[in-house]
Amino acid sequence: MSEIFQYDFMRHALMAAVLVGGVCSIIGVYVVLKGLSFIGDGVAHASFGGVVLGFLLGINPLITSVLFAFIMVGLVSIFTGKGKMKTDPAIGVFFSFMMALAILFIGLMRSYNAELYSYLFGSIISVTATDLLIMLALGIIVLGTVAVFFKELLYVTFDPEMALASGIRAGHFNFLILALLGLTIVISIKSVGMILVLALIVIPASCAHQLTRNIKTMFILSPLFGITASIGGLCLSYYFDLPSGATIVIILTFIFFLTALKRVKG
């Protein structure tokens, strides 16, 4: 098996798999426990709009996708703040708006751009050394923030009202979780694609949630599943010439079914 990593692109792909698998599955714990799947999907679509704009303007698509992810999070936060509007329709509105922008930008590009498809469906073997560096830097920011504010993020995820009542700035931390989710999606979008990135965030944490009622164990099990499936999917896709993103997600879903058999009560 080691011979497949003699190629540079496979070594990059492996590093991307570990990075994306790890970061997605850590943030996934908050997404699963707080019920943020839909906003996650919305942010993924918004980041894709940013990617297309990057290609259109000829700037690094990661920069524009961060921008779009944050605009999406910001719009939803503004419109749902102080109970003005329910979260679900707010996401629905801006989700569609962002996707409309993406389609509009594609229409404005007079030429066909094959690389766009790797952001749509994911192409882990096309991750370059520069991409990896940006991904690593953003990954360190995400995981570092989680480490620094671990207690506060946990309390706000569990019981936001109580956290606020006991002197934690719950609103700030709720926004921080969404911002971290946005960065995570931006890190992952090239490797697994806009359509499948949510799976890499939600499934590992859901598997962990089936097996434990201890939050700390969840933070260990979730990246274990995420990284294992990413590496496994990468290898399988290489040997059998399959799309990598889809292979990773199918392995994850298979793990999910297995963990469901061992589901804990409560």
């Binding site: 956290a163 006991s166 949630h209 201890n214 939050i215 164990t217 969840m218």
Partner: peptide, 30 residues
């Protein structure tokens, strides 16, 4: 931070994966 609050029943997510000891410890977090 100088006040303790016990909210109304039903406002706490009982499916959240946390044990009693750790849940009480959260009261120290702030």
């Amino acid at each position: 931070k100088r006040m303790g609050y016990v909210p109304q029943k039903g406002s706490i997510d009982l499916t959240f994966p946390v044990k009693v000891f750790d849940a009480v410890m959260m009261g120290r977090y702030p």
